[in-house]
Amino acid sequence: MNNSQNNVAKSYAIIGFGKIGKALAKAFARKGIEVSIATTRNPESFASEAAAIGPSIIPTTLAEALKANVIFLAVRFESHADVAKTLPNWQGKIIVDVTNAYGVPLEQLGGQPSASVVAQAFTGGRLVKGFNHLGAAILEQDPAVHGGSRVVYLASDDDTAAAEIGELAKNLGFSPIQLGGLSEGGLLVQAQGNSWGKLIFKDLIKFDL
């Protein structure tokens, strides 16, 4: 009961409206959950695309979208720092890191998991790595499959934030699986240089027996 009440109070935004951003928007639209969409472009430029996905998809400015308390970062990994700079502090916000750092030199990451680098950029925010292991063509599909539900993996150094995003994933129709911390199980869903984590692209369905 409390979880559903908490979710009612939550506000959501997706930063980025490329293939992954649109796939996430379709997941929200499928359940009629309102989510703001923003890019660096004027919201009028993608308003018709948003409207085509569903009435709960709200095109807005970046500044307006960042008022949400759960923010999906669906931009290129290289752009995460630009988004992070738009607010001096991300206190009270959960950042869901949907980026993939494939091809980014390991030296550039300082030997850390890419999500740890993203987490450090978003000062004060709570970061959850998730929804990034599936390609857009799979992610945009209905997660209800043959009586089961599509798995999404979540990793975070903040158990409470991971649990909150797990609840959201369930509300969107997915089966969340918690992998633990970013530098532990989280490595299974993070690209390292030119190699992919072992769980990336694995499209699994969970059945409740």
Results as ranks from 00 to 15, higher is better:
Lys129Ile: 06
Gln120Glu: 15
Glu107Cys: 02
Gly130Pro: 00
Glu78Ile: 04
Ala121Ser: 15
Ile200Trp: 01
Ile53Tyr: 14
Pro105Lys: 12
Ser79Glu: 15
Phe28Met: 04
Pro59Trp: 13
Lys85Ala: 14
Tyr102Ser: 03
Gln91Thr: 13
Ile94Lys: 09
Ala84Gln: 09
Ile177Leu: 13
Leu73Pro: 01
Ala68Pro: 09
Pro113Met: 13
Val117Lys: 15
Phe122Asn: 00
Lys31Phe: 01
Lys198Ser: 10
Ala115Tyr: 03
Lys198Tyr: 04
Ser11Val: 05
Lys19Leu: 11
Gly130Trp: 00
Phe122Gly: 00
Ala47Arg: 15
Asn3Cys: 02
Asn6Gln: 10
Met1Ala: 12
Pro88Tyr: 05
Leu139Lys: 00
Ile205Ser: 09
Ile33Met: 08
Ile94Trp: 13
Phe207Pro: 00
Ala65Asp: 08
Pro176Ile: 02
Ala52Lys: 12
Ala169Arg: 02
Val35Ala: 14
Ile138Gln: 12
His80Ser: 11
Gln190Phe: 08
Ser175His: 14
Ser183Tyr: 01
Met1Thr: 10
Gly181Leu: 03
Val83Ala: 04
Asn6Leu: 05
Phe17Leu: 06
Ala169Tyr: 04
Leu187Tyr: 01
Val96His: 00
Leu73Cys: 00
Ile57Arg: 02
Gly110Glu: 10
Asn194Met: 03
Ala163Ser: 14
His133Gly: 06
Leu62Asn: 10
Gly130Asn: 00
Thr99Tyr: 11
Val152Gln: 13
Ala155Ile: 05
Leu154Phe: 11
Val118Pro: 11
Leu182Tyr: 08
Val117Ile: 14
Val104Met: 03
Ala9Lys: 14
